[in-house]
Amino acid sequence: MSRLDSMLRRLTAQRDGLSWAAQQIADTPGDVLDMGLGNGRTYDHLREILPDRRIWVMDRVLQCHPSCIPPAEDFLQGEAEPMLSELVKRGARIALAHYDFGSGIKADDVKESARLSPMIAAAMQPGALIISGQPLVGFQQIAGPETIAPDRYLFYRA
């Protein structure tokens, strides 16, 4: 598979997975967390499919498209560990999280996602959903939409 085809497959899985998750949490109270703002595409999609939810966003730097800048009070800038601690300190209870941190080096990304998993868990309310491109630990892995290959995107319940 070409890198372009792989990217298209990943983006389609991400969009479809988030849309599926938004339906799954329709009756679950809580906020949304987007870990890894990047260009802002995922954040923009979350705003569209979950317009009545507070969406927390975190990233090392704010370098997204100007139309995707989150409100200052919802953006946590810095390294993941202190930002996750800050989220918990602010009393956020997350119903849906999207994990999109990564360097593109699989071994490093898997190691980081495992290290951050307990901190992510501290912010999640029981039964919350986590959608991730990387494996997480300490969560119950569940099946996502049938249209998404099991190895392409991962779905977890807190």
Rank of each mutant, 00 (worst) to 15 (best):
I69P: 00
G78Q: 03
E73K: 02
G144Q: 10
D27M: 10
A97M: 02
I142M: 09
Q14N: 09
R53G: 11
W56F: 09
E81D: 05
I55T: 04
G104K: 07
D5Q: 09
S132F: 08
P51E: 13
R41I: 02
A22N: 01
K89R: 10
M35A: 15
C64R: 00
Q134H: 11
F75H: 01
A149R: 02
Q24E: 15
A128P: 05
T28E: 11
V32M: 05
M83T: 06
A121C: 05
G30R: 03
V88A: 13
G30A: 06
L62D: 03
I94L: 08
A72F: 13
G36K: 11
V61F: 09
R90A: 04
P29L: 10
L8C: 01
P82M: 15
L116S: 08
M119H: 13
L50E: 06
V32G: 11
P51C: 15
A123W: 10
R54E: 02
L33S: 01
R41C: 04
P51T: 09
M7R: 09
P118T: 06
G36Q: 06
L4S: 05
A21M: 04
H45S: 07
R60T: 07
A92W: 11
R3Y: 14
L11R: 06
Y99V: 11
S6N: 11
L46I: 07
D108I: 10
M7D: 08
T147Q: 12
L50N: 00
D74V: 07
L76A: 08
Y156S: 04
K89N: 05
W56Y: 10
D31A: 14
V61Q: 05
Q125R: 14
Q63W: 00
A22D: 02
A26E: 14
D31C: 07
I105M: 13
H98C: 09
S113W: 13
L76Y: 14
R60Y: 11
L96Q: 04
Q63P: 00
R53W: 14
A72T: 06
S2T: 12
Q14L: 15
L62Y: 05
I105N: 13
Y99E: 01
F75W: 08
G17Y: 10
Y156P: 00
L50I: 03
A107G: 02
A158S: 12
A72W: 05
E112M: 10
D16H: 13
W20I: 01
A21S: 02
S6T: 10
A121S: 07
L129I: 12
E146D: 15
D74K: 08
L84S: 02
R152T: 13
I142W: 11
V61W: 05
I142D: 07
P70Q: 10
P29D: 14
V110T: 07
H98I: 09
L87E: 05
N39S: 12
Q24W: 14
M124K: 04
L76V: 02
T147H: 15
E73V: 07
Q140D: 10
Y99H: 04
A92H: 12
R41K: 11
L96P: 00
D74M: 14
D108F: 14
G102P: 04
A114N: 03
P82F: 15
Q77I: 04
R115G: 02
R10V: 07
T28P: 00
Q14R: 08
A121H: 12
R41S: 09
A97N: 02
P82E: 11
D27N: 12
